[in-house]
Design a binder for these strands. Structure first.
Lengths: 267, 267
DNA sequence: TCTAATATCCCAATATATAGGATTTCTTTG
DNA sequence: CAAAGAAATCCTATATATTGGGATATTAGA
């Protein structure tokens, strides 16, 4: 077992349910010797990934906040996304606007803003989303390259079936193709009860899917109001965001021909 | 050298100036073999600390966003701080309100909100602050236990002198005592040009310093307006926040007598 | 100042990481 | 669609860092 893996087990222990751990608890939980845990904790603390609280307890440390800041400042999806969301937020009425990105096998929400008095949904920044439920995830999924989809199908066959996306490869493929043929996708209560969501894909300059832009609102609103104007705003916003990112990538590319542009691609 | 340290060197490479790295660049930068770097990158990627972008480039990964989310949700300083800042923001006029916490030897801003059209300062969430400059840092510093201060003085003697806090231990001690005797502290352009800041200390139930609450504004405003009312709001807000945290800690303590309360203490 | 708790140090045994090159997988391009 | 070029992984002997048990030191609390 690699030592990073061991360290990660320590970090993994920290969750919303159990945010504070003592060394003794970690010794018990991870089945390792006391001295080793102390060494781990020391190193993680020196690196800022853990911080001491009173009474021998530890919590996640400031380094994480710092690294998150870096992501917020560097990722074009976030910097440009912020501008875009600010621009469209006044025009969408009650609801929440968020951007989800694909990183590895996770879809996570990387930015979110809401209009006052709207519903509270679980897509808050940093929450890993189910890859096969909700329009925000599915619209990304649908635009992944075929090869990647095959891999996903093989690894997540059960989840895909349960989410109603198809029990066989062909079925799955056809369902996704159907999604791909529309400029946006909506979903109802797939992730949170009582929530209607409307998502559009964000592409880079080469047609690769990068992210999704979503508007979530109470189902009641979706029942009584036409979605056409809203869909147009979201689709337009997603296009615009993709355009800005492509533009930035081009500039970055011109500066450093061999260095890859700081763009998150679906890999 | 521990292997975590090696891994960390990889993470350290990623900065706002250089957010994207290829394996080759890392091999050169860290003076390690290609296969080792590939292994590091692989493990970090599997753990979600790095994510692949096009062309063999890597950026910081989603795990960091996830962990940051956990901190935001678990740390009482943040959850309660959010409420408090929301409450006082409408009453402070032009400027930025933020909370700084001490974790290890770092003071970092953990939460920040601003009123529209105000100045842009560098205290954005996650930014590590100089420990000896700015009222937000100094008010925390001043309330640290003596033993801790001695250590800090020994390790950071030069910084302390340069920041004008004293060249000798006695001088340093007296300066801090002076700060401690007032309910709040103000500073002018110590961190950012043209910025006036006003900070109050946040204590836990035992009188330990936990954090600082700060209002930053343009110097011009501070020159023309009396600070008394604003100081009262900030001092009151800090007291209130400390009270809520102590209350929460007590509740948590009742539930799990032996487990330390999830409270960040100056350690 | 003393005591309990928290944390570090030490060292021999052992498991693990390392580097260098061969091999495989993926991407691009003609 | 095939071949060339990147990117990533695999493989192995050796050197090295990690491990855990207990002794030791440092801190916090009375």
């Amino acid at each position: 077992m690699s030592s990073l893996e061991n360290m990660l087990k320590v970090i993994d222990a920290f969750s919303e349910e159990a945010p504070v751990w003592t060394v003794d608890q970690l010794v018990e939980g991870l089945a390792t010797s006391r001295s080793t845990i102390y060494r781990y904790v020391k190193e993680l603390r020196e690196a800022g990934f853990l911080a001491a609280v009173g009474g021998g307890g530890y919590i996640l440390g400031p380094r994480i906040i710092e690294l998150d800041r870096q992501i917020r400042h560097c990722d074009p999806l976030l910097t440009l996304g912020r501008e875009l969301v600010t621009a469209i937020l006044p025009h969408v009425g009650e609801g929440i606007v968020f951007i989800c990105g694909l990183l590895g096998d996770d879809v996570i929400s990387v930015y979110r803003r809401e209009n006052p008095n709207s519903l509270d949904i679980s897509y808050s920044r940093g929450r890993p989303m189910p890859l096969f439920r909700g329009s925000a995830s599915r619209i990304i999924l649908a635009h992944l390259p075929e090869r990647r989809l095959m891999k996903l199908f093989l690894t997540h066959r059960r989840d895909i079936g349960e989410a109603g996306l198809g029990g066989e490869w062909d079925e799955f493929r056809i369902n996704l193709k159907e999604i791909r043929e529309h400029p946006y996708l909506s979903s109802r209560a797939q992730v949170d009860q009582g929530v209607f969501a409307l998502s559009a894909p964000v592409f880079d300059g080469y047609g690769n899917i990068l992210a999704s832009l979503t508007l979530a609102m109470p189902e009641a609103r979706a029942d009584t109001e036409s979605m056409e104007v809203l869909a147009a705003i979201i689709v337009g916003g997603a296009k615009c965001l993709g355009g800005s990112i492509a533009e930035l990538a081009e500039k970055a590319g011109a500066r450093a021909a061999r260095a890859p542009a700081p763009i998150r691609r679906a890999v």
